[in-house]
Each structure stands twice: as structure tokens, then as C-alpha cells.
Design a protein around this nucleic acid. Structure first.
Lengths: 213, 213
DNA sequence: TTTGTTATTGGACAAGCGTACAATAAGGAA
DNA sequence: TTCCTTATTGTACGCTTGTCCAATAACAAA
């Protein structure tokens, strides 16, 4: 008699968690926050509802984990763009922009995850902390590049404020482009962002040269 | 014998809808998208669940109506800021900025409504249409002011692209400030936005002078 | 006062939700 | 092979959800 087919397969917790995270990402993309429940995720991962509770505290915990996972992938993509660019802070900053407006960063599915995560920020202090760190890291990289450009070109600027404004603009363009890609294009976003750097390099934003505080 | 107290009061549909919209805004602010249900809204409005169905198609319809209502109030606040400012496009643009970073525009509760609305954009074509129009109007006003500044100062710029970038920056700053007011301040946002205008006025963003299309 | 319109109620209904928990079995260790 | 750990199942529970609909009554009009 042939060996009976195993009714299920055991996974190491780490592996199973990653599968559940992937299922959660799919749910958020296809069904939105409202349609993403413990049961919906379990069904999509071909797993019983109870298993989700065994690995995560609840659906919010799962969403945070999903944000952490895809957030790391995004950060990695941006890091690779910077490291793969030619030497010099300006080249690296421009490479950063290029990477920001193409997959896997520019991705409708990503926005669904971000929206869910943002909606958790207000009520959950733990989530708020994660968000704060992610954004601080994100801005820190840009601030460093901007400061390097200023030093190289020998002009003064408050790199902190400049980075704040630049990330806000990138975020805004990214958000709008994910929400509705028909109003303007990837190429428009790229031109706008590159023009900002052109201006920075040309000594623009002189009003930001006084260090705040 | 005293007249019996009426068990409930009748409202004109328009009045009742506004009350339900107000209750929805409170729900979104306090409970988030996940906690905002037909029943939660009904309870908050001291009304039976059935009444909500009588006035709105469902919770999504109610959220869209809420977005429309508060969106109109925001647009009105910005319009008043522009009209109350001194003559000249630059003054008006700066007044627009000032209004963007104080209540009722800069308001945590507003973000909760926006997040819910954004999450509906993807799946509901009607919502997508509303979003598109709101943003088009919003940008159109800034584009006009920017074009006026360029004409007054006799320099060329693609006002459309410039407005796209500027609104993205304002949106990004607004979003981050609502999500986490501790990383940077209202005043930082104002300095950044004003610096962008300083730069525009000084003839910055020359890379955007070629008209697209 | 009487009448008519309809905003409003309140309960019933099925479906879906998160959670808990005892039973099961997969797969490595010994 | 046998044993042990624990990932996984499946189900049952109580709660909330959206929707439906007949009954009710507030209020304007006549």
C-alpha cells in the first residue's frame, strides 16, 4: 500500500510566518483593510484559522509584520540603487529618485499596505514607534546625501529641513501616483524630483541655510 | 395629564444626513476605519441601525459623503485664506500655505477620514472619480497662482509640473505632521514651504521651464 | 380635527468575525 | 525503531456585522 499523503506539512515558525505575511499582503491588495481578516488570510494561505492565532497576536500584529517585511524590501531596493550608482552624492541621490519611481517601490499593492499601517499608527503606541524609526532612517539617508552635496559644492544649507521637504515631496508624488496613475506619469514625477536637485545643486533654497534650533 | 414626550424627532433628510456624517467623522477619528460600522455610527448618532440604511447605501457611501463634507470645509478654509490675503499671487500663495498648516486643515481627525477614503479609491470607480476631481481642483488653484507669479516676474516655468511638485510636498508634510507631530513642527513645515516659494520667486526650478506635451 | 406622508423604530435573520482548546500528527532526535 | 516536541487542525462558542421589513408615530397639510 502506498504511503498516505501527509494531511499537512510542518513549517519552521519563521517560514510559516513569512507565508502568512505574503497572504496578508495579497489580502490587503485585493480586498483592502476592511476585507482583511484572520480568516481571509488563513484561507489564502491554505491554513486553518487557528494557526494564525498561533503565530500572531491578531490581524493588527500581522499587518505590522507585513509592513516591516515589505518595508525592509523597499529599503533594500533603495540601498542597492545608491550603492550601484556612480560615486558622488549627487549621482547617488539621483539614483535614489529613479528607484523610488519604479517597482518594487512604485507599486499599487504597497500603498494598500501603507494605508492600513498608517491607520494603526494613531491608536497603537508600538506601531507609532515603528513608524517613527522607519521614517527617521529613511530621511537620515537623504539628509546625509544632501549634506554631502552641500559640502562638496561649498554652500551652506540646513540639510535636515531640506531632507524633510524633499522626502515629503517624494512621498506625496509616490502616494498620488499609486492612488491614480492617470493624472500624471512616472516621468513627470522624475522630472519634478530631478528639478528639485538641479535647484539644490545650483544653490537654491538659500532660505534654509540657517540651522534651526 | 402632561403631553407624552415624543419617542423620537423627525428630521428633514438633509439634516439627518448631516448628523450621520458628523457621527461618522467622530467614529473614524476615535475608532478608525476598522471600528466604523453602520451600527457604531447609528449608536453615536442616537439612532437605530435601520435608519442609516434608509439614508445611505452602506458604510462606504457614508464615508464618501463624510469626505465630501469635510473636504468642502477644507476647500472653503483655503479659499478664505486666499481671498483674505493681500493682493498679488505671491501673498496669496503664502496665505494658502499658512492655512494649510493650521486647523481646520492640519487636524489629526481629518487624516483618519482621508485614510479611509483613500482605501476606497482602488476598488470603487465612483470614489476614484471624486478623488480625481478634488485633487484636480486643488492643484488647479495652485497652478494658477504659480503661473501668475511667473508672469508677474517675467520668467517661464511649467506651472503644471511645478504645482504638481508643490502640492505633493504640501501633502507629504501634512500627512507626516498628522501622523506624528513630534518629529518636526508646524513651523518647520512652514519654513520649508515658504523656502520653496522663495526659490520659485528667485527664478528657481529652471529645469521645469519647458512646457511638457 | 382629521388625514396622509414618510422618517423612524426595533427585532429577526444569516453570515462572518476573533478566540479558545482538545485532539492530531508531522518530523526530528535519540 | 520509538519517543517527544509542537506545528497544525477542526470545531464550537459568543459576539458583531449588514440587511431586511412590518409596525409605529411624528409632523405637515388640508
Amino acid at each position: 500500500m502506498a504511503a498516505a499523503e501527509p494531511r499537512f506539512t510542518r513549517d519552521a515558525p519563521e517560514i510559516r510566518k513569512r507565508k502568512l505575511i505574503k497572504a496578508t499582503a495579497q489580502c490587503l491588495a485585493e480586498l483592502g483593510h476592511a476585507g482583511t481578516s484572520v480568516r481571509a488570510v488563513a484561507a489564502r494561505a491554505n491554513v486553518s484559522p487557528g494557526l494564525v492565532a498561533h503565530h500572531f497576536k491578531g490581524i493588527d500584529d500581522l499587518i505590522v509584520a507585513t509592513y516591516g517585511h515589505v518595508g525592509a524590501r523597499v529599503a533594500e531596493a533603495l540601498t542597492q540603487a545608491i550603492e550601484g550608482a556612480a560615486d558622488g552624492p549627487e549621482s547617488k541621490l539621483r539614483a535614489f529618485i529613479e528607484a523610488s519611481f519604479k517597482p518594487p517601490v512604485l507599486d499599487r499593492d504597497l500603498l494598500a499596505i501603507w494605508l492600513s499601517f498608517w491607520s494603526l499608527v494613531r491608536r497603537d503606541p508600538g506601531v507609532r514607534k515603528v513608524h517613527k524609526k522607519v521614517y527617521a532612517d529613511y530621511r537620515q539617508r537623504l539628509e546625509q546625501l544632501i549634506a554631502d552635496i552641500a559640502r562638496t559644492r561649498c554652500f551652506g544649507i540646513d540639510a535636515h529641513l531640506a531632507a524633510l521637504g524633499f522626502t515629503a515631496m517624494l512621498d506625496g508624488l509616490w502616494l498620488e501616483l499609486c492612488l491614480d496613475p492617470t493624472t500624471f506619469s512616472r516621468e513627470d514625477a522624475l522630472r519634478i524630483a530631478h528639478a528639485w536637485i538641479d535647484d539644490l545643486v545650483a544653490g537654491g533654497f538659500r532660505a534654509l541655510t540657517v540651522r534651526r534650533r
